[in-house]
Amino acid sequence: MTYRVIAMAALLGSASTLHAGGIDRSGQSITALFESGRYAEFSLGSVSPNTSGVGPNAIPPTGVGNSGNMTDNFFTFGAAYKADINDQLSYAIIYDQPFGADVDYPADADYFAAGSSAEFNSHALTGLLRYKMPNNFSVHGGIRVQTIEASAAIPFIANYSVDGDRDTGVGYVAGVAYEKPEIALRVSLTYNSKISYDVRTSENSLLGSNVTETEVETPQSVNLEFQTGVAADTLVFGGVRWVDWSSFEIAPNDYSTLTGGGKLLSYEDDVYTYSLGVGRRLSDTWSVAASVGYEKSNGGFSSNLGPTDGNKSLALAATYTRDSMKVTTGIRYINIGDAETTLGGGQTAATFEDNDAVAIGVKVGFTF
């Protein structure tokens, strides 16, 4: 079993979270830590979502207008470097953009949220150390330094807008893995801690202009990832990711006042994301893989700034290898789960159906 097939497993696994629940984007993968020797990689992802909804005629003030596509295209970038200290110890430095949102309702739409927008950006740098034990088990852990910044404009709520300054927080990573190299078997379990922030927040609305602090915590999560050879040059891989989205919220002071305790962004349920795939080496230079992804629909109302509920996906990838370089490309089609939003009172404000997204990813890795 060659590392070329394993590289595709890593790319397709991370691609499954490019349009996952909450504002999950990278999946916080640490697969670079398990590469052989000294290794460096760079990855780029592009996602083109199409998400639109319709306000039902019976519920003012929504009218019957279509929202238009309210999700902008976005890019993600990642990089990693891994090296061995000795036969038992190795380390990795990983950069990713774990959480993000780009919402932009067309201003000319005949829709109650026309002109509303929101943006959430994050950057994380993770330093990991891994210790191999004699019995095929290993433990890994380290520190994650992460920055976030956010802004939003919601004209239909008292002409409200908000800007959150960039803030930095620190969390940790801890996990365990089991490997059997002769059959390309690896199972890893990794915990990512929550990270807390006190964001300086500038709010503007009919209440005036006010500057306060907003407490934000990016959620804790657990990644269970596996791969194993099942035949010559054939690999099965997959994983489960749990994210504690039910504990996440952004609730600036003035927004809560204007909405009677409402939150700018929050989620009722945790999210589980599943993936399963198979990879096959075709020759010394080419390998291919396919995977499926699933995220359960939880029901209930979704946020007007994130009107999705679960998804299903299908991905294909290919890897070209030459000397110490491997280039992996993948494409994933995501069927976005239907969702309903509300303006309060337990009534439906809009219905979002038949939406989808296409994600394209490229990863270049070097062993040296």
Rank of each mutant, 00 (worst) to 15 (best):
A7C: 03
N304W: 02
V54M: 06
Y95D: 14
S221W: 01
Y105A: 02
A83K: 07
G345Y: 11
D233Q: 10
A339V: 13
K194G: 12
S122F: 02
L264Q: 05
K132R: 12
T259K: 08
D87R: 09
S52E: 15
G171H: 11
A92H: 01
D233I: 06
N204R: 15
D284A: 08
T190N: 13
R144E: 08
V222D: 05
F248I: 12
A109N: 10
A124C: 08
L89S: 13
F248R: 00
F42V: 15
D269W: 00
V240M: 11
D338T: 09
Y272R: 07
A350P: 07
T367W: 12
A317S: 12
L314M: 13
V364A: 15
E213M: 08
T319Y: 03
Y39E: 04
T168Q: 08
K194Q: 15
T76F: 00
D72C: 05
L276M: 08
D163T: 09
L33E: 00
R38S: 13
A124G: 14
N136A: 14
V54H: 03
G260S: 11
T201V: 10
Q220I: 06
A80W: 07
F301M: 07
E213G: 11
A101E: 02
N298T: 08
T285S: 12
Y294K: 06
F237H: 04
Y105R: 05
V222N: 05
G63P: 15
A184L: 08
S151N: 10
A152C: 13
K132F: 02
S116A: 14
G65Q: 07
T214E: 10
G300L: 08
G306C: 08
S46T: 09
I6T: 15
D108Q: 11
P134I: 07
